[in-house]
Design a protein around this nucleic acid. Sequence first.
DNA 1: GCAATTTCGCTACTTGAGGTATCGATACTG
DNA 2: CAGTATCGATACCTCAAGTAGCGAAATTGC
Lengths: 186, 186
Amino acid sequence: MARTSTASGSPGRPRSSVDAAVFAATRATMDELGYARATVDRIAAAAGIAKTTIYRRWPTKGALITAFLIDAFDAPPMEDFEGREALPALIRWVAAKIAEPGVGAAFAGVFTDAVNDPGLRELLSTRLQEPHLLTLQELLGRPRRRVLFVVDVVVGTLLHRMGMTGEPMAEEDVDDLVAMVRRVLD
Amino acid sequence: MARTSTASGSPGRPRSSVDAAVFAATRATMDELGYARATVDRIAAAAGIAKTTIYRRWPTKGALITAFLIDAFDAPPMEDFEGREALPALIRWVAAKIAEPGVGAAFAGVFTDAVNDPGLRELLSTRLQEPHLLTLQELLGRPRRRVLFVVDVVVGTLLHRMGMTGEPMAEEDVDDLVAMVRRVLD
DNA sequence: GCAATTTCGCTACTTGAGGTATCGATACTG
DNA sequence: CAGTATCGATACCTCAAGTAGCGAAATTGC
């Protein structure tokens, strides 16, 4: 098993830090099998840990995949995002992330579960979307409604292409997406 | 059971025409429980038929839901769609359809399954999207690539809003969507 | 070193849903 | 009435989400 966290004063065996291994295994299994067929058993096996260990950290499969996505979309390279070229760079970054093996499938899957699972929807909206929403709002200096709309357009378009074709959007079309959104914000 | 189809020369008990009842039951069950929890058993029960009868007509749950969607999105009122106002009217029609109870959930669900199910993706792309694609291409007089992009934007945006908020997009935002797409095609 | 404590892996289990098989009953054709 | 194809009902198989229980680690504090 991977590292084990440092002492924290409390007694008992410390939790081993398996997050990185689990996320990597999630990514690989998602890519190989997709959301529906990627079982928690297989993810656990790929990560080299027991299924029960996963359920001790994330209550449901949806929560696990959401955590994976939060991790995957964490920390966009903001240093590259200055001035007028910030938005295009950010859109291209999101497009590239969704194009990464496993990420698009995970996103689409957890997304669907969210439509009729208020708890998951809350998680997805609060933990995954909200931080980026705040960043964007500050970056663009636009009202929240406008920023929400832009996020729907960008992520929705990329995911729809992914679902319909099975492959990420071509660069050429991402260029069009950038141009379109740019005009919306003018 | 509903009507039974007219004689077709072949012997044996004719198939009863249950499609309308099944689609209505699918809509209601999707609305009530969402894609994941809407079981084929329940849909059959709601339609007043046996589960086996459903599986005699549609090979999988995904195929059933796709058929439901094809039926739901069939025959947009093209007589209303003439001249410059054709596209806005069509977008609003799609938005209203996705906003109908059960339709958005069904769409998002089958959509996710499609990401890693080539067969379902083929079905969805060929039977659901393609006809509308052809109509749009003729209506807009634009190259296929452009029309595909527009469809990704419109449907993707509407579905993303649905997934994130659990509710259909407000009319105000649909207006923005119309305006944005209009500019893309200019 | 040793007790107390907490997590680990493992195995077994429960529950539920997709999908299949079978069979008697039913509704047709000729 | 004979033949045929579908119907509903029931039972079943398989697989995956999630839970329970237990002995084996890995710690802290004495």
